[in-house]
Simulated assay, not measured.
Amino acid sequence: MKRLLVTGSNGLLGQKITDILLQGQFPGFEYIASSRGSDRFGTSSRYRYLDLDITHHEQVAKAIETYRPDIIINTAAMPNVDACEREPEKSYEVNVVAVAHLIAVCEHKNIHLIHLSTDFVFDGEEGPYEEEDVPNPVNTYGKHKLAAEELIQKATCPWSIVRTILVYGVLRDMSRSNIVLWAKDALENGQSIRVVNDQWRMPTLAEDLAKACLTIAERKATGIYHISGKDMFSICEIVEAVAAYYRLDASFICKEKSEALKQDARRPKRTGFILDKAYERLDYVPHSFGEGLKLIDEQLAKLQSS
């Protein structure tokens, strides 16, 4: 049994990893979940849970010394792109400094560090991208995630970087939203929503990303991996697909150019990933976006009936 520690386990990806492990799909792991505050998943009798803030180096060092994980999957981050632009010092602390502390501990204990990164390390001028393509971030979030990647690539412990795109899914406590749930809720309530039609992404189902991370851990796969959905859409097309699936009034969708939204952080125009490496080395099989919406619908129905 390998001992696996996940940081940020209260987030969408963290909870999906927890769910998959509790289903027994990856039986080779002894699981330790960690996040700030109490356990939102709520079944910690079946695994260890730690109240852990990765920006506190002493906390992290003590936890790792106590529980001695073989593998750490770091899902903790400050992912709000506009907030990172407004608060660059806080972004740097969470997205870079905390990662540097994790690297130091992993090097000392020879722990395999699996770190979550983003398509925003690219400028979006020539997407979709392969793992070897040269990053060129256009906002603070992307610059800080790239800085963390560069630190990891110099590490002497085993390491993996998992870049992903626009993750969506359902949490059992509905504590986090994402583009799919946001669009569904707004349109169901008859709210007009402004959506850009000049940015393109490959949205990623959280279950697919979680399984990919666990496969990397199981196979001890090192290096950089691109993990996303397989369908490319404009942001507007994603929202229109949500409207179509739920038979909602698409007239509430206001199509805008990026400049019109006046967001704090610039976004890359077209990212997307070439997934050949994940297909070949991880046997990665992502859901289509339509299949992802169907799964979300089933999960929401189950939550409403419980």
Rank of each mutant, 00 (worst) to 15 (best):
M1R: 11
K2R: 15
R3P: 06
L5S: 01
T7F: 05
T7L: 05
G11P: 05
G11N: 04
Q15V: 14
D19M: 12
Q23F: 07
G24D: 07
G24H: 08
Q25I: 12
Q25M: 12
F26R: 08
F29L: 09
I32L: 12
S34T: 10
S35W: 02
S38Q: 12
R40Q: 15
R40L: 14
F41M: 12
S44N: 13
R46T: 13
Y47E: 11
Y47F: 15
T55Q: 08
T55N: 10
Q59M: 07
K62N: 11
I64Y: 07
R68N: 06
R68D: 05
I71P: 00
I71T: 07
N74A: 07
T75E: 03
T75M: 08
D82Y: 07
D82V: 15
C84N: 06
E85F: 07
E87M: 14
P88E: 06
E89M: 10
V94L: 11
V94C: 06
V94P: 02
V97E: 12
A98V: 09
A98H: 04
V99R: 01
A100E: 08
C106A: 09
H108I: 04
L113K: 00
L116R: 14
D119A: 08
V121Y: 00
V121D: 01
E125C: 12
E125W: 11
G127K: 02
E130S: 10
E132H: 15
P135E: 06
V138S: 06
N139K: 12
H144W: 02
K145N: 05
A148S: 10
K154H: 04
A155D: 01
T156M: 09
P158L: 03
V162D: 02
T164W: 03
I165S: 09
Y168C: 01
G169S: 04
G169A: 04
V170W: 01
R172F: 06
M174A: 14
R176K: 11
S177I: 14
V180K: 01
D185Q: 13
A186K: 15
L187M: 07
L187F: 04
G190W: 11
Q191D: 13
Q191I: 11
Q191N: 13
V195P: 02
Q199A: 08
W200P: 00
R201N: 04
R201L: 14
T204Y: 03
E207V: 07
L209W: 06
L209M: 10
A212L: 10
L214G: 05
I216C: 05
K220T: 06
I224F: 10
Y225S: 02
S228W: 02
G229E: 01
D231A: 03
F233N: 01
V239A: 04
E240W: 02
A243T: 05
A244T: 09
A244L: 13
A244Y: 07
D249E: 07
I253V: 10
K257T: 13
A260H: 14
L261Q: 08
L261H: 10
K262D: 10
D264C: 12
A265G: 08
K269T: 15
R270V: 15
T271R: 05
F273L: 04
L275Y: 05
L275T: 00
A278H: 09
A278V: 12
E291Y: 03
I296H: 01
D297A: 14
Q299E: 12
L300A: 03
L303N: 04
L303Q: 10
Q304H: 13
Q304G: 09
S305R: 14
S305F: 12
S306A: 15
